[in-house]
Design a protein around this nucleic acid. Structure first.
Lengths: 157, 157
DNA sequence: TTTATTTAAGTGTATATACATGTATTAAAT
DNA sequence: ATTTAATACATGTATATACACTTAAATAAA
């Protein structure tokens, strides 16, 4: 079986950590990069970037309702994403449609096209399968991971 | 006390997760973004980006030895970082020096300048303090977090 | 020794991130 | 009602990411 680099010490060629917390921070950053890289590789088959996929997933959550840009923005994982420009590229690929809002002339409203729905369905299938193969922890461990991450971000303030 | 958005469901305005593992993936991506954002805010006071800081930390690890670009690259958390260009910017700010390698003419070797060392020391102080304030978990929990992240990446293959 | 392969770094391009600014429109204040 | 402030989105700029390609130099192969 193919052997991945999994220990953080190997991955970043260092074992000088100030403490366990410092190591955990680097471990989170590295794991996030690892996840994104794997997913992006898969998404490339569909001509999508990770962020374009993310926007499409968000649109799917409300479909067939339209969403305005700010409602998409506040659901993005990376809050500083420039959603208007990500949408520009999806419009060029005819995966989403952009129209003026009837209720507020400042807003534009976005919807998935039929092509968008098809591409999203296929790529999601592919991503889910990747996750199955890639991820090697039990549900109970995932729960504990979620608990610790949220605790780290200050849940119990 | 200031209340952060800490629950993933709040942060991305969604509670439709396929399973705990799917939620954990999003939680890792969000936490990484959160960490990077907080750190970048701090580093901005020193005119540094997160990646420039990362390169300087790596150089510090070997100081006063010089390092070539590929030795820096393989220690980066985000492996696809374009190290030559990050160095370009550090050279412009006179925080590092670049010179031809005496042993291998393909290589360039990089060292921190005295200004670089000073800026790194000050910014590291600032980052460490931020970590103290920001991070709210025990050492034992950090250990468990490290274990779970490495298990997730397939340690026991 | 000459050729071929590999390696190191730099360069180019498209997209994304982070953040500041501009512009139109709506909402609030006077 | 008019002015002011806030909001939604677009646009601009510097940096970073991801990846392909180029060039020069070192190593391996013939």
């Amino acid at each position: 079986m193919y052997l991945c680099i999994v220990k953080l010490e190997q991955a970043i060629q260092s074992n000088k950590f100030k403490n366990e917390m410092h190591k955990a921070s680097l471990n989170i950053l590295y794991t996030a990069w690892w996840l994104k890289t794997q997913m992006s590789k898969e998404l490339k088959e569909f001509g999508l970037t990770h962020e374009q996929y993310n926007v499409m997933r968000i649109l799917k959550g409300k479909y067939p309702e339209q969403m305005c840009v700010k409602d998409i923005s506040c659901r993005m994982i990376e809050k500083s994403s420039n959603v208007p420009r990500i949408i520009d590229r999806l419009v060029l690929k005819k995966l989403v449609k952009r129209a003026d809002s009837p209720t507020d002339k400042r807003e534009t409203v976005i919807t998935l096209t039929q092509a968008g729905i098809a591409v999203l369905a296929a790529s999601t299938e592919s991503i889910n399968q990747l996750m199955e193969e890639m991820v090697r922890i039990e549900t109970s461990e995932a729960q504990e991971l979620n608990r610790l991450l949220e605790r780290m971000r200050g849940t119990e303030v």
